[in-house]
Amino acid sequence: MTDARTSMLAAVRAALGRERLPDTEAAVLQRRLDEPRSNIVPARGQPSPEERIDRFIFEAERVQATVVRLAGLEEVPDAVVRYLRVANMPSAVRIGDDAVMQAVPWHSEPLLETATGPAVDSDAASVTSAFAGVAETGTLILLSGPKSPTTLNFLPEAHLVVLPSERIVGSYEDAWQRLRGKLGNGRMPRVVNWITGPSRTADIEQTLLLGAHGPKRLQIMLVDGECPQ
């Protein structure tokens, strides 16, 4: 393997007509990686704080996500129960276990079954929290971790996402900055999911259909008020 690596890098350098970069030039490039700069951020990704939430809702609904606004985390269980009832789904959810989800008073709905852990095929619905919402395109950003398994975002038919409204940012770049603030530069959770609407396909005669392999429905619960960080 080392041989292939050496010869491939040599082929690249030969094509570029030079040897390995001298240290001074490499240091300049390394700085570009260590201190990442934004390129052009469209005006759409720089809404004022007042516009931010409305823009997010508008864009998310354009891609067939549904959005409900709640006054606080204590309203989440009831909103979940009502959503499942209207969708004619069983009153059971696989839930994330992170700080936001732990702050939800699930016991207020005793008839709602909740379970934590990774999703299994029989799970019909999941509830997770989002790290950020991006107003520019109505995109949710979810991070994987021991308390937020990635399977929850993809296996169930319905995915319900709790998004504290203070976590809505303008652009992808804003979200990266927040993530670097949380984890440090150059560090990533194992998986960062950007989710923009429910899963879909148009592979048969270009007919757009929702619910390909991922969730058929995406419900965003936008929560105002105090939320754990």
Binding site: P118, P149, R190, V191, V192, N193, W194, A202, G214
Partner: peptide, 30 residues
């Protein structure tokens, strides 16, 4: 920002996933 708009006319594809390495010690899946 260019990819999906140029391809299917979506602003962004539904799933854009950044994966960094294998399952970590405390992870429950992956």
């Amino acid at each position: 920002r260019l990819l999906a708009r140029s391809a299917t006319g979506q602003d962004l594809s539904v799933y854009t996933t950044f994966t960094t390495g294998p399952r970590r010690p405390e992870d429950l899946d992956g």
